[in-house]
Nucleic acid binder design. Structure first.
Lengths: 211, 211
DNA sequence: ACGATTACATTGCAGTCGTATTGCAAAGGG
DNA sequence: CCCTTTGCAATACGACTGCAATGTAATCGT
């Protein structure tokens, strides 16, 4: 093989440029030329690594999702083992756009969400990971209910569905500057307090900053 | 004045065409020519009623928001006066995309949400109405808490924030076909059950259909 | 009746889009 | 050595975009 190049690394670099663009100017500003310029390369190179624009978009979306998944599962396994209640809160906090990095990723996700509404093939991956997350959360909620007698007997799957929708909604409102990240965390804690039948105990290091 | 024409009606008609396009093919498919074709008129006419594309987009967004507001407040005042708990549920149900009409409007809203993330001027109106809704919901929640001794003492504003985020998140998931409208309603009722400290009583006619 | 004004249609323009094509330098295998 | 494959650049093409300019028909005030 002549003139080796790290294909995957190049693609990630280009996808990074794409995400920067999408976050600052929306997906409508994402074109081959713009991505190339943002990455500081020629448009021909972008074409070399992605034969079509759709391939580029799909790769970028996959990257966003796998990044998020990775960070979430990493956070879940880090530190000392947490009880299910603390674990749930930790995970949900990770989803909220509380720092600039996650604000950026949130914008990209939102853009892709609207994109997926039109191109159904794009949304399949989203559906899968959302479903897995929902099932996992339901399990954790079940665990909390099993070990607590204060916790109301809410259907765990419904509660998980609501929880995921809640953090997604909170994230969107924070992105839209409807309120700060702290208020979103407070609303989340209010829900968790209801769900676990206790005064919320945000012992785990609370979020640092909000928009 | 020569050759009168109902300016506002024409604009609404064009905005309708825009919304149809946005719902079926996303905001990226919205162009002056496409809107004109969808409305069955010439592109020149579109230009006559909207001097710029941005003016058209802004008008359409305003229309979506005022439509939603109108339908919601209409629903709130219709029928016999409801207690605060039933009122809240009725309003939230109105927001969910449970029928084809609201699915369409939901798609448009989602598209505009992503659009507003980039063009801050667009998002101002959204912020306002969201803030009003939140305050109103907080009042209603306070009223429920005042008349019920089962209801946990959750901060009403936080609960309202969570409630609004919850239905928005549920709506997005339903639009993304993550689950059906019925499941979204069930998750909503689960949350309301927690919030009001009672087994949910979905006496008000439940949603008709789901995606 | 007539000029002014409004309502629309048509056309043209400069620019951007995704993509296909072409070209060329670099490098490993025969 | 040479030749083929790969990495990347440059460019051309047709379709599309928002918008400006221009034209024409209808209507009202006078």
């Amino acid at each position: 093989m002549p003139r080796k190049a790290d294909h995957l690394a190049r693609r990630k670099q280009l996808a990074d440029a794409l995400m920067r663009l999408a976050a600052s100017q929306g997906l409508e500003a994402v074109s081959l030329r713009h991505v190339a310029a943002e990455a500081g390369v020629s448009t021909g190179m972008v074409q070399h690594y992605f034969r079509t624009k759709d391939e580029m978009m799909t790769f970028a979306l996959d990257m966003v999702m796998s990044n998020a998944q990775e960070r979430i599962t990493a956070e879940a396994g880090a530190g000392q083992p947490l009880g299910p209640a603390e674990l749930i809160r930790t995970l949900m906090i990770q989803i909220l756009p509380l720092d600039e990095t996650r604000r950026l990723e949130g914008h990209v996700s939102l853009a892709f969400l609207a994109y997926a509404a039109v191109k159904p093939a794009i949304g399949d991956g989203l559906r899968d990971s959302s479903g897995q997350m929902r099932a996992f959360l339901a399990d954790q909620i079940r665990a909390v209910q099993a070990t607590s007698d204060n916790a109301p007997r809410t259907d765990p799957l419904h509660a998980a569905t609501a929880l995921l929708a809640l953090v997604d909604g909170l994230g969107i409102h924070v992105l839209g500057r409807h309120y700060s990240g702290e208020e979103a965390v407070a609303a989340l804690d209010a829900y968790l307090g209801l769900l676990f039948g206790s005064t919320p105990d945000p012992a785990g290091a609370p979020a640092t900053s909000g928009g």
